[in-house]
Simulated assay, not measured.
Amino acid sequence: MKNGRDGGFNYWKLSYRKKFIRTLWMIPVAIFLSIQMIVMDIQSNFSVFLFVLFIVTFIVQLIYTYIKWKSETQINVR
Results as ranks from 00 to 15, higher is better:
Ile63Cys: 10
Ile27Ser: 04
Ile35Asp: 13
Met1Ser: 09
Lys13Arg: 12
Thr57Met: 11
Lys18Val: 02
Ile75Ser: 14
Gln36Lys: 15
Gly4Lys: 13
Glu72Cys: 03
Leu14Asp: 06
Lys19Cys: 02
Met40Ser: 14
Trp69Ile: 01
Phe46Arg: 12
Asn45Ala: 08
Ile38His: 05
Ile55Arg: 03
Ile38Gln: 14
Ile67Val: 14
Thr57Cys: 06
Asn3Trp: 04
Phe54Tyr: 11
Met40Pro: 04
Leu33Asn: 10
Val29Met: 13
Leu24Pro: 06
Ile38Asp: 09
Ile31Gly: 07
Thr23Ala: 14
Lys70Ile: 04
Ile55Trp: 03
Phe49Gly: 07
Val77Pro: 03
Asp41Cys: 12
Pro28Ala: 00
Tyr66Leu: 13
Gln61Ser: 10
Tyr64Phe: 09
Asn10Trp: 11
Leu62Thr: 08
Asp6Pro: 00
Ser44Cys: 03
Phe20Tyr: 12
Phe54Asp: 12
Asn45Val: 02
Phe54Asn: 13
Gln43Met: 04
Ile63Asp: 01
Met40Phe: 12
Ile42Gly: 08
Ser71Met: 07
Thr57Trp: 11
Phe58Ile: 00
Val48Phe: 04
Val29Lys: 05
Trp12Pro: 00
Val56His: 04
Glu72Ile: 00
Val52Asp: 00
Ile27Lys: 05
Val29Trp: 11
Asp41Tyr: 07
Met37Ile: 00
Phe49Val: 02
Phe9Met: 15
Ile59Ala: 10
Phe49Met: 07
Glu72Ser: 12
Gln43Glu: 07
Phe46Lys: 09
Gly8Lys: 15
Lys13Phe: 01
Ile27Ala: 10
Asn76Ile: 02
Phe58Met: 11
Phe58Arg: 00
Phe51Gly: 09
Pro28Lys: 01
Phe9Asn: 15
Leu33Arg: 05
Gly8Val: 04
Trp69Gly: 01
Gly4Leu: 09
Trp12His: 06
Trp12Cys: 08
Met40Val: 09
Asn76Leu: 11
Met37Lys: 13
Asn10Phe: 13
Gly8Trp: 06
Ser47Phe: 02
Val39Phe: 07
Met37Gln: 14
Ile31Asn: 03
Ile42Met: 05
Val77Arg: 11
Val39Thr: 03
Ser44Tyr: 08
Asn3Asp: 11
Thr65Met: 07
Leu62Met: 08
Val39Tyr: 11
Ile27His: 10
Thr57Val: 02
Ser34Met: 12
Tyr64Gln: 04
Tyr64His: 10
Asn10Tyr: 13
Met26Asn: 07
Ile31Asp: 04
Leu24Glu: 10
Phe46Asn: 05
Ile67Arg: 09
Gln43Ala: 06
Arg5Leu: 13
Phe9Trp: 15
Trp69Phe: 12
Tyr66Val: 01
Ile63Thr: 10
Leu53Met: 09
Phe20Val: 00
Ser15Asn: 07
Asp6Lys: 14
Gln43Asn: 15
Ser71Cys: 01
Lys18Ser: 06
Leu50Ile: 11
Lys18Trp: 02
Ser15Cys: 08
Tyr16His: 13
Phe49Gln: 06
Ile27Pro: 14
Gly7His: 09
Trp69Gln: 10
Asn45Lys: 11
Phe20Thr: 07
Thr23Met: 09
Arg5Trp: 08
Arg17Leu: 06
Ile75Leu: 11
